[in-house]
């Protein structure tokens, strides 16, 4: 099948970017979106042109490296997938696809479709962990966790940090990401001692990174490849507000 790709090309942060139009004629419908870009890049390299930069790693939808906008939707039209798992059979022969990088102040552009998502790592570093002594593995069932809680924690823990939530949000909010991290640790017994401080620190870092506000409209949930539910944002707000009230103020502790 044949596809027309209009791809955002930008050499680096300091140069101006623009859309470039490419025709890819030998697209196999079973290829993934990334493999389609591989085919294009091989052709560009053969002709001595600069290949399109995009991020990728596992190519099985679990690492969170890949992602860009396809026709205005993060990760493209198929729900619950990353672009590496989006096969070309979901497009029509001769269709024109507009590929754009994630757009957010907190995600500065690196090149073409690749953006710098270190802001997410800094949010995790601010509190997305539990402080426990390492050693031999604890006994199974030593800490009881109800099935319902374990399931909800694992649902939130599925977040792969791809950034689609930020990309799809009209306010470039990182609430679904931060909410998923706060929820997955906050639902489990191991996460309780640091629950207040974690929420306050992670949310404070999220706001410092210049992500926008959450208006609960649900665009993030619709594009999330792991289908993280919007209630993780409610949980983040709950833990943040409660934690802000309880945590000692600076200079008080």
């Amino acid at each position: 099948m044949r596809l027309i790709l209009r791809i955002w090309r930008q050499k680096n942060r300091n140069t101006k970017g623009k859309f470039a139009r490419y025709e890819v004629n030998d697209v196999n419908p079973d290829m993934s979106m990334l493999e389609c870009l591989d085919v294009l890049n091989e052709d560009l390299a053969r002709r001595g042109k600069e290949p399109v930069a995009f991020e990728h790693d596992c190519r099985e939808g679990i690492c969170g490296s890949c992602g860009f906008m396809i026709n205005g939707v993060a990760h493209g039209p198929l729900s619950g997938t990353t672009v590496c798992q989006l096969t070309m059979r979901h497009f029509k022969d001769g269709e024109e696809l507009i590929l754009e990088p994630w757009r957010a102040r907190a995600f500065p552009l690196v090149k073409d479709l690749a953006v710098d998502r270190n802001a997410f790592d800094r949010i995790i570093a601010a509190g997305g962990y539990i402080s426990i002594s390492t050693g031999s593995a604890p006994d199974g069932n030593a800490i009881p966790v109800s099935k319902e809680r374990a399931d909800a924690a694992m649902d939130a823990a599925q977040c792969i940090g791809c950034g689609a939530c930020v990309a799809a949000c009209p306010n470039a909010s990182a609430s679904l990401f931060t909410g998923a991290k706060i929820t997955h640790l906050g639902l489990l017994p191991q996460g309780q001692p640091e629950r207040d401080l974690r929420a306050v620190r992670m949310v404070t870092q999220m706001n410092l990174e210049q992500f926008g506000q959450c208006t609960n409209i649900g665009e993030c949930v619709a594009v999330c490849p792991k289908l993280i539910p919007i209630e993780v944002i409610g949980r983040m707000n709950h833990d943040y507000i409660a934690g802000s009230m309880r945590e000692p103020e600076a200079g008080e502790a």
Binding site: G72, V73, G218, E219
Partner: peptide, 19 residues
């Protein structure tokens, strides 16, 4: 804040999950 959070907008954006 919404404006500063996304200084460069999308050429194409399609809402799919909001009312």
């Amino acid at each position: 804040r919404k404006r500063t959070a996304r200084p460069i907008g999308y050429a194409k954006r399609k809402p799919i999950g909001s009312t």
